[in-house]
């Protein structure tokens, strides 16, 4: 009952994708590619190198154009992150709004 699968509804709204790991060639390209394949639109990108070697990239994405559910998008990004040797998180924008904006 509780474990019954509910039909996947396409994810709506905006989310933040965070990538953390050792800097190397092809991280942005790889993640951007995975997002494009999921038909997720990138609205904005910010990147920085923390403590010299740690690479952080933050993307604001729009999920409204994708036909995939949130879970599937997250699964694909994490898989791509594993290939690239970086950690990828995707979280709805709302959590940052709640915690950092009054």
């Amino acid at each position: 009952m509780a474990t019954a699968t509910t039909p996947t509804t396409p994810a709506a709204g905006r989310a933040i994708v965070t990538i953390v790991g050792l800097d190397r060639v092809g991280i942005i390209a790889g993640i951007a590619n995975a997002l494009a394949e999921a038909n997720v639109n990138i609205l904005d990108i910010s990147q920085s190198v923390m403590r010299e070697e740690f690479f952080t990239m933050i993307m604001m994405v729009d999920l409204g154009t994708s036909q995939l559910g949130f879970e599937e998008i997250g699964r694909r990004l994490k898989a791509k992150g594993r290939d690239l040797g970086v950690q990828v998180e995707i979280q709805r924008e709302d959590i940052f709004n709640a915690m950092h904006r009054v």
Binding site: T18, V20, D44, I45, S46, I58, I95, F96, H100
Partner: peptide, 15 residues
């Protein structure tokens, strides 16, 4: 930045 309304610090803090 235009669309991104949060600083890297804020996002990293939450994570």
């Amino acid at each position: 930045m235009r669309a991104l309304r949060f600083s890297a610090d804020e996002i990293v803090e939450t994570i």
